[in-house]
Design a protein around this nucleic acid. Structure first.
Lengths: 137, 137
DNA sequence: TGTAAATAGGTAACTCAGTACCGAATTGCC
DNA sequence: GGCAATTCGGTACTGAGTTACCTATTTACA
């Protein structure tokens, strides 16, 4: 479960924004809080914007605001945007895939992948924020 | 659950060898069956040899033989040799890790990792071979 | 007109896959 | 016994692809 940095950035940003949908933050403010590259984060935020999860306000005093549904959006919804979640169905064939051993192995990894997806999909931003709260204090 | 090619190679090889511990196969024979690079496979087999999972016989007519315990060795035992299985404990700190959001996220991914490990650890080579058998025929 | 996001392009670092090569051990043939 | 062929052992290296991140330019807003 090695998430890409971009994915972590995205999750940080969206959790931060979703924690108070009225608040508007610039990419810089978010980047500073989590000690990540502003440029990199900006790219990530654009992806989130395209999906309608955040809303961007351009110009002076601009920034980003959460514009999704925290109770409906799951971690998987966010992770999907940056990570290849389905290895196999993606038409990726490897040598040895058609041997009995290859098929058996693929079955096992597919089952694990399914669990991963199910887990991430069971956690909404809302429940995640509650978990975050427990670490705050 | 994207396994490296080396890991897949290793699993193919060890399953092949474990399926009949009396049989001795050269790296070349195994590589051909699974359509993978002999060089690459050789490298992998050396790692397995160092762990005592296979036994190498040098010289003409040499090759590899399974020398482990198929009922005791799990997929995790093999995967571990080629894959970083524990991201967090490996002392990997990322920016934003100490924020409440970072901690919460780490907890979730760690739980998924634990499931992965548990799954791979629950499958011995022996049970895997039975699964392989179902794909044969 | 300054600030900040949108967009595009590009690069440095790293990882992974695979190759090349040489040495050591073993076998079998002459 | 001597020698060639075979196969493993180990190191070093190369090339492709990915990841992370920066730079520069454009667009929009106050």
């Amino acid at each position: 479960m090695r998430l890409q940095k971009a994915t972590r950035c995205a999750l940080y940003a969206i959790l931060e924004l979703a924690s108070d949908p009225k608040r508007q933050l610039s990419a810089n403010e978010i980047a500073e809080k989590y000690d990540i590259s502003t440029n990199h984060l900006a790219k990530v935020l654009r992806s989130l914007g395209r999906e309608g999860l955040v809303e961007a306000v351009r110009g002076a005093g601009g920034g980003y605001r959460f514009s999704g549904n925290a109770k409906r959006t799951t971690l998987l919804d966010v992770i999907r945007l940056f990570e290849t979640v389905e290895t196999v169905s993606a038409g990726e064939r490897e040598p040895g895939d058609e041997t009995a051993e290859g098929l058996a192995l693929t079955q096992v990894t597919m089952e694990i992948e399914a669990i991963e997806r199910a887990t991430f999909n069971s956690i909404t931003l809302d429940t995640m924020l509650k978990l975050v709260g427990r670490y705050r204090k």
